[in-house]
Design a protein around this nucleic acid. Sequence first.
DNA 1: TTATGTGCAAAGGGTTTGCACTCCG
DNA 2: CGGAGTGCAAACCCTTTGCACATAA
Lengths: 131, 131
Amino acid sequence: MTARRPTRQRAALTEMLAQIPEFVSAQDLHTRLAAAGSSVGLATVYRNLQALADDGEVDVLRTDTGEALYRACRSATHHHHVVCRVCGRTVEVEGPPGLNTWSQRVSDEHGFREVTHTLEVFGVCATHPVG
Amino acid sequence: MTARRPTRQRAALTEMLAQIPEFVSAQDLHTRLAAAGSSVGLATVYRNLQALADDGEVDVLRTDTGEALYRACRSATHHHHVVCRVCGRTVEVEGPPGLNTWSQRVSDEHGFREVTHTLEVFGVCATHPVG
DNA sequence: TTATGTGCAAAGGGTTTGCACTCCG
DNA sequence: CGGAGTGCAAACCCTTTGCACATAA
C-alpha cells in the first residue's frame, strides 16, 4: 500500500466525487472542478482517479465506446448498473438470482479459477425523447 | 440492412478471422493479414469489423484498457464468454437462465428502453500455475 | 456507369508521460 | 532539504474520417 500525501487537488477531487451520484468521465470531472473554482490539472485528475481505483475507493466502469467512468463507491456489496448511454445516468441494481452460482459453474466446467465477472446494462433513460 | 459487396479485402479478413480461435484486436488482425501476404488497409479492417459486428457476425469485447477485440462468432445465438486474464483464451458459454428477463425488468423499473447488456466472466485458465 | 469499398494520411478523442516546479513531511 | 504530487504540453494509442481512386453490379 502506497502512502498518499494529502493535497488540495486530491481533496477537491474526492470531495467532488462524493457529491456526484452518477458515473462521470475524467474529463467531465475535470470540467466540474474548474467550474467549481477548484481547478485541477487534467493529468492530475487521471492520476488520482487511477490511484483511487487501485485502492478500491472508486468504482470504474467502461462504456461500450471504451471510455472510463468513475464514481465514488456507494454500497460495499457487489452490484450492477443500468447506464443511460445518452446522459450517463446510472441506477444501481442487484444482479439476477443465481448469477454467482452460474459464473462459478461455467468457470469450473472449463478449468478457470480466480473468477470475477462484469455485468452491465445499457439503455436510454426516460428523460430522452424516442428517436 | 445494407447490402455488402464482396471484395478481396473482405474475403481475406473473414477468412483470417475464421482461423483465429481467440479474440484479436483490429491492429493485430491488420498485421496478420499483411504477414499472410493479403495486405488490407487498417481503415478497411476497422470498417469491415464494424460492419461485421453490426451484422452480428463477429463478437466484440472490450478489454479493461478500452481496446476492442474481435472474434468470429462460434454460435449464432446470444452468448457470453469466460476469458483468461493471463493468456486471453476464451470459452463461449450460455448466459444464466433468466438473464434477458432480468435485464428487461430492471430497465423497465427505471424507465430505460433500447436495452442491451454485457456479461463477461474473467478468470485464470488451467494452463497457468497457481500463484 | 454509379454507388459502394478501399487506401492513405490526417484528424480525433481519451489517456499517459516527460520534465520542471511546488509543496508536504 | 528530499521526494511525492502537480501542471502543462507533447506524446501515445486506438479509432474514425475526408477525399481521391478502384471496383463490383
